[in-house]
């Protein structure tokens, strides 16, 4: 999967870097299928004795097994995989609740996974400088409908229809770090009958 280019926008729109191991007491990784290769890339370069400090959480795409095997094979101290981002992030919270200062967190994959990982790290007391993110895969956004507060996953279109309140939402670049979601605001509030073309833009 190719590295993604995210155009510069407003300040709250997250930007991402490239994972790089920094000194640390322990190294925690959270990735989905699109970010798995980033984890393998950086972990493979570590000396054997450092694997004692490596902990990996993974969210595979359903039915896929090859990357699970590759990640398992790197020989981390702990490796677990979960069917959903929510479960993996909850596990990350469990792990971090016992973690010590010096812990580094590395997140790789889609924006939804990265955003939720960042929010969990912050909640557990990790300084933002101890969290690295690499964005991979789809630019699909996690969007919160600002009207009914429904979270809409994997949004690829502009605008998008809220599955709950059925308003047509304009997906803003305005991103909430706390919610790990972009804000979706009604696009045709003045005239709900106005027809607006729905285009696939977050690919």
């Amino acid at each position: 999967m190719s590295e993604s280019i995210i155009e510069e926008s407003i300040l709250s729109r997250p930007t991402y870097g490239t994972l790089k191991i920094v000194p640390g007491l322990a190294h925690y990784f959270l990735a989905d299928a699109s970010g798995a290769e980033c984890v393998i890339r950086v972990v493979q370069e570590l000396p054997r004795d450092m694997m004692e400090k490596v902990h990996i959480l993974y969210v595979p795409t359903p039915g896929e097994a090859a990357l699970i095997t590759s990640l398992y094979a790197v020989g981390a101290k702990r490796f677990e995989h979960f069917p959903t981002i929510e479960e993996a992030v909850a596990k990350l919270g469990d792990w971090l609740s016992d973690a010590k200062m010096g812990t580094q967190l590395y997140l790789a994959g889609t924006e939804g996974l990265v955003g939720q990982g960042v929010a969990k790290g912050e909640e557990c007391g990790l300084d933002h400088t101890a969290v690295q993110c690499e964005h991979r895969g789809s630019l699909a956004r996690r969007v919160q409908c600002v009207h009914c507060k429904t979270m809409i996953e994997d949004v690829t279109t502009q605008p998008v229809k809220c599955p709950s309140c059925e308003l047509l939402l304009f997906v803003r670049d305005h991103y909430s770090r706390r919610l790990a979601a972009f804000q979706g605001v009604c696009i045709n509030a003045e005239d709900p009958t106005e027809e607006i073309e729905i285009k696939e833009v977050f690919k």
């Binding site: 007491l25 971090l96 973690a99 010590k100 200062m101 010096g102 812990t103 557990c124 007391g125 990790l126």
Partner: peptide
């Protein structure tokens, strides 16, 4: 000492 501090500690 510095290896055993919970996350969120300031020294």
């Amino acid at each position: 000492l510095l290896s055993s501090q919970p996350l969120g500690t300031h020294v």
